[in-house]
Design a protein around this nucleic acid. Sequence first.
DNA 1: CGGCGTTAG
DNA 2: TATTCTAACGCCG
Length: 429
Amino acid sequence: MKHIVYALVDCNNFYVSCERTFNGALHSRPVLVLSNNDGCVVARSDECKALGIKMGQPVFQCRELIEQHHILLFSSNYPLYADMSDRVMQTLATFSPSVEVYSIDEAFLDLSHVPGEQLHTYGHQIRETVWRFTGLPVSVGVASTKTLTKVSNEVAKKHPVYQGVLSLVHASEEELDEVLEMLPVQDIWGIGPRYARLLQSRDILTAKDLKYADQRWIRRHLTVVGERTVLELRGIACIPLETQAKPKKGIMTAKSFGRSVESLKELEEAISCYVARAAEKLRKQESAATCISVFLHTNAFQQDAPQYGNSLTRMLPFPTSFTPDLFNVALDMLRSIYREGYAYKKCGVFLTRIVPQDVLQADLFGEYSIEQEYKKARLMCVVDLLNEWWGSNTLFFGAQGIVRAWKMRQERRSPRYTTRAGDIVVVST
DNA sequence: CGGCGTTAG
DNA sequence: TATTCTAACGCCG
């Protein structure tokens, strides 16, 4: 069997780089992108990483650094990032017949078709082409397993000598081990803080140590997933390329509010919005849900305030993705867990028991009529098409409310440069 | 099968 | 003033 050659292409500081692409003034300035409600740091420019600002850190904890170093802050602008991501992925598709879009800013590629001696050059071509087409900097790691591409990508990103591209395919075992020895065990793909602590306590400190660790011990303490990681470090590919996006088994929509919310009416609007969004995702992957959960809770960080949280799960009479049907059930559930007199911070809905839309089955009690369901499906199809063409929420249900005063804060969002006609950058001549 | 723990980005 | 969001999977009882 011929070995597969894998590449991992990963955008550097993706959200920050997206912001910089459309605003030259941001280059060489420290930049942070913030989470929903502008609460946490979700992306950092290199300057901010050097200042010690951590991923996920609450913004109020870095206030001083932000002022001292005149760090520029941005609310996250997901429509922009999603669109830039599409462009990157389309570019990558021209370099390989098999691409796995692993996350918004990363893709694994099958490079088995590239002659071995050309891999290094090919990696640089990928990097330069993405730069030319999108203005985004990427790093490229090439190796014989996905875990090893993660390693080479990280090394390529961290050490300027590699100029963003490193292939380990032709490295000798000794050279490979030298690279692995540079990588602390907590930086290996699949090793989180918990496993890292356990491994460190057993004197397994680097990727090289893990590569040569006792397989049975790893299996027992880190499950089969950890065992796979060890084998992959040894060059034995255990994690296949997944080029076909699998439909999600659960779809959750949940957000913290921009301020605390007490009234049932506003919670109803929020839950309706989340149901509408979740159902949209459901239809996009051509599925229907059989089970729905609704939850709400107060702000656990507000320790002196009275706390309350609750959730309810209910089976639907038959699988559906029809938004109004889901509204009725979700709002009914919300009303039964709602208690007056609390300052709510977050609520959400969770759709589960997801099945393909085309195997919808009649229910026992005859509530289900196939003609009726076709009508509903066509209606939702029209809503989805309009929203796709004219922008999300062009058409929405009355239950979702109009003012939406509870919505999350996004005080520093950049324009939707690429997805809204009015926000397109104007180049003066 | 549900709940918990762990990891990912 | 202020603390992200979504998803998958393995193990255990």
